[in-house]
Structure formats: structure tokens, C-alpha cells
Simulated assay, not measured.
Amino acid sequence: MFSQQLVNGVMLGSIYALVGVSFTMTIGILNFLNFSIPSIFMLGGMMSWAFIVWGGLPWFVGVALGIATGGVASLVVERFTYRRLKNSHPDVPLISSVGFLVLFENLVIVYFGAYIQRFPTPFGDANLRVAGLVVSIPQLCSLLITAILVLTLHYILRRTQLGRSLRAIAENPNTALVVGINANQIVPMLFLISGIFTALGGVIFATNYHQVSPFIGNEVTLKGVAAMIIGGMGNIWGAVLGGLLLGLTEAVSIHVFGGSVAEVVIFAFIILLICVLPTGLFGDRNIRSERV
């Protein structure tokens, strides 16, 4: 039923939106495309599984530790990639972040194997039925969590001292330093928030689809980059809208054309949209003032 696919598309789009926001925060403020994000997405799901299944911890404790692992991994990337290499050629930190992507993925493969693992969930097969539509509890929770986190992030960036400092760094890092903003203290907070968003996306994905593997981040984060581009580089709400559009396009494509050609339809849609709007849906705004 078509309306059910729309619901599924919104739920899937919420995962793409989280990842898109993570990319947006680093490239919109630091002009740094963090290619380690797929591995941090994977770490959120895999480490949660490891803490729950291997460690025998309660589900919520294991998930919290898995998300924390993603945050710590993001801080490691900041310390050894962005901070040490930010004054070098722009390609150097980007390639270094790819190195962390490979490192994290292979460490997980060494310790846990390369196979798909079943991810436990406390929700079972609990569903809500509204007007003939079926919404699973994990899907509903993921949508609500995404909405709350993005609204909270928007408030932090617009209304708090941390947010004002980040926007000052985005506007002009040298001027921010002159007025007393210590980037070495502020930027790690940005990476920590980005890592938590990404790892949470991995947990939500694993909970919704009941499986994890060392490679779950690759395809999802590709859609996250696409969401960022569709919305307009550096615009958080644009990344959210881009993620939701991608999720809806994917769900409708599978319903209409079948899973075998869904990816073709999705990326044809992306290419068409970029041809019509090269700077994205919100790219006509002042990127410096509206980027976060």
C-alpha cells in the first residue's frame, strides 16, 4: 500500500537525516569533509551489539556505551586528523580521515568478524496501527529522537555560547581567535556532537533492521552525503529535508519499480535535482550566515 511506503520512507529518511547533519556540521563549520563518519556509524551499531551480546550488559546500557564509543572515535579523528593537519593542504586531512575509516572497519573485522550479526531489540515485534498504517515502535522512536536531537542542536547553535563560538569559527577562524575563542577547545565539542549523532544513527539502523555488520555504514553514509548536498552545503535543516526526501524516494521507488532498480531511480533523482539546483534546496541563502 502506497501510504505505508510513505511512512516507511519518512522513517528511513530520519536515519539519512542524522548522518547528513553529521556531515553538515563538519563541512559547514570547518570546511572539512569527514570521511571517517561511515566507520563511526558502524561503530555505534557494532559496539552496541558487542556490549549487549558479548558483554551481557542490559540493552540500554550497551547502546549508551556503543554511542559513547562513536563519540570517542570522533574525538580521536579530531585529534589526529583535523587538529594536526588543518594547516596543511586541504586534501591531507580528508585522506587522513579515510585512513581512520579503513582502520576502524578493519579493527572491528579482526575482533568480531566480517559477518552480519543479529542485533537484539527490547521492542520485539511491537507495532502501532493508525488508520490502517503499521508503524513499528523502533521506527517511531527513531523519528522522535531525530526530531528532538536536531531541534536541540539548532537551539545550541543559535542560543548558546558554544553555538556562537562555532558560528564565529565558521565565519572566520582567525577573527574568532582574535576575540578569544579557543578553537582547540571548541572544535572537539563539534566532533563529539557529530560522532554522537552518527553513532546514534547506527544504533537506530541496527534496531530497525535487526542486524549489524562492519559494512553497514558504507551505503547509508553515501545517502547522508547526498542528503547534505540536496539540502545545500552547510545547512542543517537542508540536510534534514534532504534525508527525508531520499528516504521517501527510496521507499516509493522500491514500491513502484522494485528493489533491483531502486538505487538507479534514487541517484537519477539526485543528479536531476543537482542539475536544476546546483547549490541545493537552500543553497540560494548566504552560506556564511545560514550554514549552521
Rank of each mutant, 00 (worst) to 15 (best):
C141Y: 14
V53P: 06
G71W: 00
C141V: 15
I29T: 11
F123Q: 12
A227F: 05
D284F: 15
S213H: 04
K223H: 08
R159M: 13
G283Q: 02
A126W: 10
F80R: 04
A131Q: 09
P138R: 01
Q185H: 14
S142V: 10
A251C: 11
A227N: 08
G201R: 00
V187G: 05
I254H: 13
V19M: 04
I37K: 08
R118C: 15
L244K: 06
I116C: 11
I116H: 14
D125L: 11
G238E: 04
S142H: 11
L140K: 02
V252K: 12
N184G: 12
F35G: 03
Q4M: 07
W49N: 01
G232L: 02
L200K: 10
L144V: 15
H89C: 08
I145K: 06
V102K: 07
L75H: 02
M46C: 05
G70D: 01
R79C: 09
S14F: 12
G280N: 09
P214Q: 07
L65C: 00
I193A: 05
T160P: 03
P122S: 08
P138W: 00
I274Q: 07
G258R: 03
T221P: 02
L140R: 03
E250C: 06
T160V: 07
I29L: 08
V53T: 09
L143P: 09
G243C: 06
I52R: 06
I27H: 09
T81S: 14
P93H: 06
V108R: 08
P138H: 01
S3L: 15
L162Y: 08
V276E: 14
G247M: 03
